[in-house]
Design a protein around this nucleic acid. Sequence first.
DNA 1: ATTACATTGATACATTGATACATATGGAGC
DNA 2: GCTCCATATGTATCAATGTATCAATGTAAT
Lengths: 143, 143
Amino acid sequence: MPDNLSIRLDFRSQVPIYTQIVEQIRLRVASGQLRPGDQLPTVRQLATELRVNFNTVARAYRQLDEAGLISTQRGRGTYIWEPPTGAALEALRREGLAERARVFVEEARRDGYTDSEITRAVQAALSGGDEPVELHQPERLEK
Amino acid sequence: MPDNLSIRLDFRSQVPIYTQIVEQIRLRVASGQLRPGDQLPTVRQLATELRVNFNTVARAYRQLDEAGLISTQRGRGTYIWEPPTGAALEALRREGLAERARVFVEEARRDGYTDSEITRAVQAALSGGDEPVELHQPERLEK
DNA sequence: ATTACATTGATACATTGATACATATGGAGC
DNA sequence: GCTCCATATGTATCAATGTATCAATGTAAT
């Protein structure tokens, strides 16, 4: 099982802890960081790591279980279930990106940045990267 | 948590109860009587002590939270704001908006999202979420 | 007097925590 | 191999805590 899911919680956020956990695990499944058969940390392990009550983790696991993403087995542990396919996978990908965007925006806003500043920063990052952008201007160097 | 904040209320004053609570907690934080990480009495405890409705205390706590002085967490309690330390502080110092946007875009691209998908996701997050908060409310760490 | 607004109180609710429980695993002893 | 039991795992239930919503109250303006 992965020793560290590197889940980041924002205790001050309005979005509940268990939802944050759910979304971040979805994210890792959607991106392939977690693969079918992988064992997740036990509810108590993850709870200790995140400094949260294990019932909160259990609630997140139960939601993921009901969504068919993982398989929780009393006395044994929790495992990633089937790889989502087709439209489900596409939806999951979108949700994953949406969640990441939401977290990014929420943190930036809380730190006092305006919406237009955030938009500009993202556009700058998009055009600044070395990836699929085709600009007529010289590429920017890494900082 | 302190058993007694020794808050004195003047019920005949023109200044609202919740404002009196806010000001006296501000004072105790400023004077060091309340230190970062300290847990405040629960809204119900303090309300009983002061013989007011717990919603009044909750309102005071909410104002202090919005001012960044304390951190209220549903189901957990209320704590004096603790500035981030160690790795979290380092991350905050390093991660300006531009840096965070760069990381966000980089990770999304690595997971196969297209630039237009990323742009749409950010716009959706910007329009979907709450309006920006103008006060500085940095992330709170666990108690 | 009437209206509008701010403040406080009452009630229901969502989230998190504490505790006890049910189930599965693995080893000790036989 | 089998039994027993300690341990590890997820589950169920209730308590504790802050939040949302609306009603009641008081105060000022018209």
